[in-house]
């Protein structure tokens, strides 16, 4: 190393040190510690006196797999991801197509209107939706009564609580994906559409054979970030249903929060967090693989 290179490395170190140190101490270290924690019986007694801590191997993971409540949380989380995710992606693509259409006047206004829920505070809008879902006075049931639908106890009925939470979550965040889709649409060369029109392709065929294939990478990105975000659902059920009714909206993160920070079963809760991480990782790998295999 020459003196000049050493000086460069030294100054790079000075610029990087604060960020890397913080990320190492307050993110990487806790992640490693969480893995270790998940193999211990860390509970409220260990919180007071660390000598109570014991290494228990895979006991926490085995207990999770044998716990009906954990399977319910897994099932609910998958329900939320597999129904809410595609719904959010489809709605955001639809909105992007409308906002980006050639004929659309004031696209900036519509884009901002559709995007506004994204910047709102989740807790506050979850509170608002609680009232919109009110079986008697809620706006939603009133609107549905015009269509002849009988009142639904959205958050009180075990079968409707999860769809209600999904609807609210999709409303809250489809605008984010819409922005990314609009950028993707604007990257498609307009000449392609012109050529297809000259060849007599109708709107559906242009969408099917030009828009969709060329949006491929955008789709993958949107699907990935939506899936990763939806797996971490927490505040919606925390504020709207507390996981109820009958645990039908209990998510993995809500379970982790309850076990870890309410009952202080931190070993058990860490194991739950790692199962969630494994699911997210598996989902990510699966989507990347599917995308690579499809033409």
């Amino acid at each position: 190393m020459t003196g000049r290179e050493r000086r460069a490395a030294l100054s790079a170190g000075m610029f990087l040190a604060p960020a890397l140190l913080l990320i190492a101490v307050f993110f990487f270290l806790p992640v490693v510690a969480a893995l270790l924690l998940s193999f211990t019986d860390f509970d409220i007694y260990a919180l007071g006196d660390l000598s109570r801590l014991r290494f228990v191997g895979f006991t926490n993971y085995l207990q999770l797999l044998q716990s009906p409540l954990f399977w319910i949380a897994i099932g609910n989380t998958f329900y939320f991801v597999l129904v809410g995710g595609p719904l959010s992606v489809a709605l955001s693509l639809g909105a992007a197509l409308l906002v980006n259409a050639r004929l659309t006047r004031f696209p900036g206004f519509f884009r901002a209107a559709f995007f506004l829920p994204v910047v709102t505070t989740l807790v506050a809008v979850a509170v608002v939706w609680r009232y919109l879902y009110h079986p008697r006075y809620g706006l939603l049931n009133y609107g549905l009564s015009w269509l002849g639908v009988d009142p639904i106890d959205w958050l009180g009925n075990p079968d409707w609580a999860m769809p209600a939470i999904i609807l609210m979550a999709v409303w809250k965040n489809f605008g984010f994906n819409m922005i990314i889709f609009i950028a993707g649409l604007q990257n498609i060369p307009p000449q392609l559409y012109e050529a297809a029109r000259i060849d007599g392709a109708d709107a559906w065929r242009r969408f099917r054979h030009i828009t969709l294939p060329l949006l491929g990478p955008t789709f993958l990105f949107v699907a990935l970030i939506t899936m990763i975000g939806y797996f971490q659902v927490f505040a919606e059920p925390y504020v709207m249903t507390q996981g109820g009714p009958a645990n039908r909206t209990l998510s993995v993160v809500l379970l982790m929060y309850e076990e870890g920070f309410r009952w202080w079963n931190m070993g058990y809760a860490s194991a739950a967090a790692f199962v969630l991480f494994a699911l997210i990782l598996a989902g990510t790998v699966l989507q990347l693989k599917l995308r690579r295999e499809s033409p």
Partner: peptide
């Protein structure tokens, strides 16, 4: 690559730290 790790994984030990 570390961005795929959900923040919740770190929360319990972070609390202890």
């Amino acid at each position: 690559a570390a961005m795929v790790i959900p923040a919740q994984v770190a929360m319990l030990p972070l609390f202890l730290l």
